[in-house]
Amino acid sequence: MRDRREDARGVRPARRGEDAFEALNHTHPGNPWAEGTTRLLRGAVEGDRGGIETGVEGLLERHRNRVDEADHRALHATVFAAEPTALTLLAWDRGLEYEPQSRFVPSSFLRETLSKLT
């Protein structure tokens, strides 16, 4: 399981005013979580639907692999992927709707939640 302190290494530089995307991407070079999250966030901020799709799909692939690993499987992970769902909701909120067609990102939840945010 990933240590949450590792994630903070990407957040601290952003708080100092450095490029948040570069800080996040350098949390763990080559790490699928960092790469997928960076692509998705950059896509949402820059209005790049392709970046959102690539980022969501990368995070979902990582999630599916973790669900397949019995050592790291948590019950909630077998039905719901929190990070891709939250980041997809961010993209929808910015007007960049992309539906990943995955049971791990329930579109009904996105639609219901988005209406409550606006």
Rank of each mutant, 00 (worst) to 15 (best):
R15P: 00
R4N: 11
R64V: 08
R42M: 15
L75T: 12
G10M: 11
G95K: 12
L24V: 04
G55M: 05
V45N: 08
N31D: 14
P84Q: 04
P100C: 02
H28F: 06
A74H: 11
A23H: 01
G47P: 12
A23T: 01
G58H: 05
G43D: 06
D48T: 07
R9V: 06
L87Y: 11
E57M: 05
R4I: 10
S102Y: 09
D68Q: 13
E46S: 14
D68E: 14
W92C: 09
E61Q: 08
L60Q: 08
A74F: 11
H63Q: 13
T85K: 00
P29I: 02
T78A: 13
S102R: 04
Q101H: 02
G51Y: 09
G95I: 12
V67P: 04
R94F: 12
D93H: 15
H26K: 15
R42I: 00
T78Y: 04
E46L: 12
E57V: 02
G30Q: 14
T85M: 01
A70K: 13
G58A: 07
E18M: 04
F80H: 07
G10F: 12
Q101M: 00
A70H: 12
E53M: 05
L90I: 11
P100M: 01
L89Y: 04
A81N: 03
R12M: 09
A34G: 06
G10I: 10
V11L: 15
G17T: 08
A20H: 10
H28T: 08
E61F: 03
R42T: 10
A81V: 01
D93Y: 14
T54R: 11
R73P: 03
A70I: 08
H26G: 00
R94Y: 08
G58M: 15
